[in-house]
Amino acid sequence: MEISTVIAATLGGALIGLSASAMLLLNGRIAGISGIVGGALKLPQGDMLWRVLFVAGLFTGGLVMWLVHPGAFVMEIDRSVLAIAVAGLLVGVGVRLGSGCTSGHGVCGLSRFSPRSLVATLTFMAAGAAVAAVVTQVFGGAL
């Protein structure tokens, strides 16, 4: 384990926690990315504007990150276009079906000791671990 990576992970995580806390304080809601984005795709809807502004903030933060440190966006895994498209589809359907992703269940839900979020987090971590292991062990890390 590299200490610099641990520090960056903890610091980045703290910023994510701070952002989720700000959303709770401002909007009184959970800062779940899939809920915010998936809700915005449910047209027509009244509370569209704040969702769009949150995503605009995501892009702006990403842009700042990219200007300062483009290395934060390297992919470095061997995946085909088809594999990434299948991954995207699974994630899109899965987070709507399961009512949340890493942020909504993993950060916000675990912070309030929600049993649903604990079960969801353990399940998606296990599924992710299983698929990642199969890609490495069966397909030699390329798919």
Binding site: V91, L97, G98, V119, V131
Partner: peptide, 20 residues
């Protein structure tokens, strides 16, 4: 909840990206 988390996790492990 379980099915959704399973599908999401599988996609996350395959592509390395979650939504955010």
């Amino acid at each position: 909840l379980l099915g959704g988390a399973l599908l999401f996790g599988a996609g996350w492990g395959l592509g390395g990206y979650c939504p955010g």
